[in-house]
Design a protein around this nucleic acid. Sequence first.
DNA 1: CAGCACTTCTC
DNA 2: AGAAGTGCT
Length: 446
Amino acid sequence: MTDLLWLRQDLRLHDQPALIAAAHAGAVIPVYVLDDEAPGAWKIGEAQRWWLHHSLTSLADALEKKGSRLILRHGKAEAILPALLEETGAERVHAIRHYEPWWRDAEAALGDRLCRYDGNHLARIEDVTTGAGAPYRIYSSFWKGLQPHLPSDKPLPAPRSIPAPETWPRSDRLADWHLLPTAPDWSGGFDWTPGETEALRKVKQLALDGYDERRNLPSEEGTSRLSPHLHFGEVSPRTVWHATEGADTIFRKELAWRDFTDGVVSALPDYADVNGRRRYDTLPWRSGTAAQADLRAWQRGRTGYPIVDAGMRQLWQSGWMHNRVRMITASFLVKHLLIDWREGERWFWDCLVDADYGNNSVNWQWVAGTGVDANMFGRIMAPIGQSEKFGAGDYIRRWVPELKHLDDSAIHDPDAAGCRPDSYPAMLIGHREARERALAAGKKVR
DNA sequence: CAGCACTTCTC
DNA sequence: AGAAGTGCT
C-alpha cells in the first residue's frame, strides 16, 4: 500500500507524526504543492519564496538520504492531491494540521481521504478555549488556559529509512518555480541558512541567559532567530519546548504566541483584512499622494527617524527585523503617519522570511489598536524615547550608514543634536504634531 | 455580575 | 504615577 505525505509548513523529518504514520502504513510519496491560488492575496511572499527554495532543497536531500524523494507539484492543492492519489494508486493523504484559512478549506475539501495529525503547535488549537468554549482573545488568559495542554511526550525521532513506492510519479523541477529573485537579486544581504539541520543546530545552541532583558535590545543578538524555521516547520514547537526545559519562561511564552495567534485567525479567518473591532472601520486613515509618498519613505527607511529607518532597512536587506523594532516601526506607520495598518501588514508579508498569517495579522492589529485584543488606539509609542531606552545606537550605526559617525548622544535624534547630515532625510513629521493628529483621528471612531 | 488584570508606555 | 477599555473568571 502507498500513501501520500503532504508537506506544507512542516518541512522536517524529525517530530513529523504524519510521516511516521504514513511510513507505518506502507510506502510513502512525500509531496510539496506550491499553491498560489488558494491563499489569494496571501500567497507566499517574495522573501519567503527565497527561503522556500532553499528549505525544499534541504528537505529533498534529507529525504534522499533516507531512500525517499520529494515530489513537487504546483496548482490548487485540493485539486492536485486527489489527482495524484488517482495517478499513483495511493489511498490516503497524511498531513499535519495548519490553521491558515486556505489550508483549513483545502483540508475540508479532501474529506476522509486526509488523515490529519497535530505537530505544528504546542497544543491542538481547538482544545484551548475559555470557560465559555470560545477561543481566547487575551494572551495572558490564553497562557493560563494552555497549561493543561502543554506537550509532555518527547519529540519523535526521524525515521531511519522511509519505504519507497515501486515507481515514482513525475516531479516539477524546483528551478522551474523561479522562487529565487533574479533581476535584481535583492537577497544578497540575507544571512540565513534555511533547513532542518540549521534549525536544530540553532535550538541546540539556544542561550537564554538574560533573555528577558536582552531580547529587547536591537543592538544585541538577544533573540533566538528561530521564527522562520518555526514558520516553515523545520523544527517543531514541541522540540523547542523540550529543549528549553528549565529555561526562562519568558522565552516559552513567546513560543506559545504562535498557538495564540492561530487560535485568533482560526476563529476569525479574515483577520488579516478586517478590523477586529469593526467600529474602527470609520477611522479616517490618510490616503492620496502625500500618504503614498510617506508610505514609500517608510518602506525604504527614509522617514528621518533613525530607529524607524534602521528597522525598515534591516527588513529590506536581511528579510527580518528585530522584534522591538517591529513594534516601533509598525506604531510609527499607523500612528505617526496615520496610514492603514493593512499597508504595513502587506509590506511585512512580502519582506519577512518569517511572515506568518496569524502572527502578522494579530500583531499588526494589536499595534494599530483595531484588534480584538486590547491595545488602545491612543497609546502611541515615542520612537526616539524607545530608541534611547533600548540602547539602539549600534543598531542604527549598522543599518543607517549616513549616521555611522554619530555617537550615542546624537544618534537617536540627529536634528535635535544639530548634526543631521544632508544625506539623511528630515523627519516626515514631528512627534508632537503626529501624536496630536493621531489622537484627533482616533476620537472620530464611534 | 463585579472585580481583576492586562506582553510589549509615557511623562 | 497615570490612563484606560474590556475579556475573562
